[in-house]
């Protein structure tokens, strides 16, 4: 396409938007609402995910062995645990390390005192263990069951389901927001399509003449595609900017007014949120703008 034609298409695209300002604004407004909502949900879900990950990382599963088995067998058990797909890390805690951390915890690390009572003996002789972290806490029960079935495993300690329930709330919020955003995207598409349809009907005579003079389909169509894409771009840049300024404000507000929240949740930085939201929002905005006008021009221009 020639430079002149590109310039023409942009000019006409903007003229379309301006001529038909009310509908253009309605379309832009809907996309803004839709993508802003997307940004808000993204922030919530992303923060919750982040929180779950932190909790998950701090949760461990501890595996103890039957008394009197040798190190060879303990290594075999270790290999078997490693081969379970949900196991992320595995860490061997020897009885010495276990005893030392017990002394640290219970006797404030006072080895002299402890030696007076126990001498050189290690009361936790048979308490060596594996400490595991899991990839997916929601599958903890199944994993524990699998480990318990390994011969010579005496006991498996695991944590409760906090992370688990947080995870399922997160999933629910995720799906609910996806559904809502999907509906809003459809509404935006419908509005853009209406805007373009009006633009086409206003310029019906002009388009008819263009075609008789010998305009290519692409020439007739491009201004409307530009119009759709511009609506999409404006509709996606504004909510990202809004989110950028509001996210910090909301986090600050929560931190100041709800100490509990601030202590409980470790908010992700604005930059990280925007880095995630901006490309998706732009893609969605431009995408629906483009496709809405593609479909509409296809229908009304018979191109």
């Amino acid at each position: 396409m020639k430079i002149n034609t590109i310039r023409y298409s942009f000019k006409q695209g903007f003229i379309n938007i301006r001529r038909n300002l009310l509908f253009s604004l309605a379309s832009i407004g809907t996309i803004i609402a839709c993508l802003f909502l997307f940004g808000v949900f993204y922030s919530v879900v992303y923060n919750m995910k982040h929180e779950v990950k932190m909790i998950e990382d701090s949760l461990t599963v501890t595996v103890f062995f039957e008394q009197g088995i040798d190190e060879q067998r303990i290594m075999e058990i270790g290999n078997e645990i490693k081969s379970i797909s949900n196991v992320e890390t595995i860490n061997y805690i020897s009885s010495d390390v276990a005893w030392k951390s017990y002394v640290d915890d219970v006797y404030n690390g006072d080895m002299n005192y402890v030696q007076n009572i126990f001498g050189e003996d290690n009361p936790l002789e048979d308490a060596s263990s594996y400490e595991l972290t899991l990839k997916d806490i929601s599958k903890q029960d199944a994993t524990v069951k699998t480990i318990k079935a390994i011969p010579n495993v005496r006991k498996v300690n695991s944590s409760d389901g906090t992370a688990n329930s947080l995870n399922s709330i997160n999933k629910f919020v995720g799906y609910a927001s996806l559904g809502l955003i999907g509906i809003l995207l459809l509404v935006s598409m419908f509005l853009i399509s209406n805007t373009i349809t009006i633009g086409i009907s206003v310029r019906k005579e002009e388009i008819a003449i263009m075609k008789l003079i010998g305009a290519k389909d692409s020439f007739v169509r491009t201004p409307f595609l530009v119009e759709g894409v511009m609506i999409g771009v404006i509709g996606s840049v504004i909510p990202v900017i809004l989110l950028y300024f509001m996210y910090d404000g909301v986090v600050d507000y929560l931190a100041k007014h709800y100490n509990v929240v601030a202590n409980l949740i470790h908010f992700v930085s604005t930059g990280e949120i925007i880095k995630g939201v901006a490309p998706i929002a732009l893609l969605l905005g431009v995408g629906i703008g483009f496709f809405a006008s593609l479909l509409t021009t296809h229908k009304h221009l018979h191109v």
Binding site: N4, Y8, A215, K216, F219
Partner: peptide, 11 residues
């Protein structure tokens, strides 16, 4: 000029 624009003539 419109007729020339439409067939993508230069300015």
């Amino acid at each position: 000029a419109f007729a020339q624009q439409v067939i993508e003539k230069s300015m």
